[in-house]
Amino acid sequence: MLEFLDSPRVLHGIYILGSLTLFFIGLYGLLAKRHLLKALIGIAVMELSVYLLFIALATSPGETAPILADGLIDFTGMADPIPQALTLTAIVIGMAVLALGVSLAIQYHRLTGNSDMRAMTELKDS
């Protein structure tokens, strides 16, 4: 009954819709929320949606992990390993940036008692 989900077109369409929705949720969080940590979470969600899009569209249903073992001796029917390697790298980078951002936000909050992005006006020219 649900075989139609196995066709790459339908599956990829669903993934595209899902990751775009995630992307815009993240963008909304970044633009509409005033709390510093919420803005950082928005950025993280946007990043995740890009990873999801990349992994999902680079793989078709029925492909296995690109590892030669257990009788698999040929590179047929395997997923493209490059997107997965790249996504792993990107996740590590994104994680580091997020950690730096959160630590700066915590220090800023300790120093000023403020976590509202719109109250960050120290740098404006009066």
């Binding site: 803005a39 990043e47 940036v97 700066l104 220090q107 120093l111 960050m120 740098l123």
Partner: peptide, 21 residues
């Protein structure tokens, strides 16, 4: 690590990460 520097760093981080995405 004072108020203005942290504010600059945070703003830079947020705008820079969005550009990187």
């Amino acid at each position: 690590r004072d108020k203005t520097a942290l504010e600059a760093g945070l703003k830079y981080l947020i705008i820079g990460s969005v550009a990187a995405i």
